[in-house]
Simulated assay, not measured.
Amino acid sequence: MRDIPVVLSGYKLTVVEPPAPNTRDDGNGGQVVVTDRQGVTQFVVALFAKLRVGPGERAPKGEEIKVTLLTDPGLGFEEDSRVELVDPRINAYQIDSPDGRSISGISFKAMGLKPVRAPREEK
C-alpha cells in the first residue's frame, strides 16, 4: 500500500529545519535536486512532532520527522514556526543491504504546509 492518509491533528508540529529543495547525492560527490515524474521540484522540511495532551497531563517524548513536500511551501516557515501538514501521507519502505540486513521504516509526505496561529490567551 502506498500513500496511506494519516491524521496528525493530535500533534503539535514545529519547524526544526525550514523547507528547502530536496537533494540527493549524484554519485560524483555533488548534489542533484529531486523532482517528481513531471519535473516539479520536491521540498523537504524537518518537523518536531509532539503529542497534544490535556491540562495536567504530561506529554510523552516527541519525535523529529522529515517530510517531503510535493509543492513549494513558500515563505514564512522559519525555525520554531507551528505548522500543519496539508494532505499528509505515509509510506512504508524496506531496503535490503548486500550483507543481508534489512532497514525498514515509514516516510512522510504532504502536499504542503500551512501556518498555525497560536491560540489567544484568555484574560
Results as ranks from 00 to 15, higher is better:
K50W: 01
V67Y: 01
A92F: 08
S102R: 09
T68Y: 04
G29D: 10
T68N: 08
F108S: 02
V116C: 05
G29N: 11
F43H: 08
S102G: 06
D72C: 05
D36Y: 04
R89A: 02
A110N: 03
R52H: 12
R2V: 15
V116P: 00
A59G: 05
G76S: 10
M1L: 13
I90Y: 03
F108P: 02
R24L: 04
L113K: 00
V67L: 00
A110L: 02
G27Y: 07
S81H: 04
L47M: 05
P119E: 09
L8F: 11
N28L: 14
D99T: 06
E79M: 11
R89W: 02
P18V: 00
K61L: 10
E122A: 11
E122M: 11
V33G: 08
D99C: 01
Q31K: 11
P55M: 12
A59N: 05
G54D: 12
P55R: 14
N22A: 12
R89T: 03
G76W: 06
T23G: 06
G112K: 03
I90T: 09
G27L: 07
V15M: 02
Q42K: 13
V116R: 05
E121F: 12
G76V: 15
P60V: 00
I4M: 14
A118C: 07
Y93K: 00
K66Y: 03
N28R: 12
I103E: 04
V6S: 03
Q38A: 12
Y11H: 14
Q31C: 06
P119W: 06
D3A: 14
E64W: 04
T23N: 08
V34D: 07
E121A: 13
P18G: 09
V7L: 13
V32C: 05
V32L: 08
D72W: 07
D80S: 12
P115N: 03
P73A: 10
E122F: 10
I95Q: 11
P60W: 08
S81W: 00
R37T: 15
R120H: 11
R24C: 06
I65Q: 10
K114A: 10
K114W: 07
K61H: 11
R120W: 10
Q31S: 15
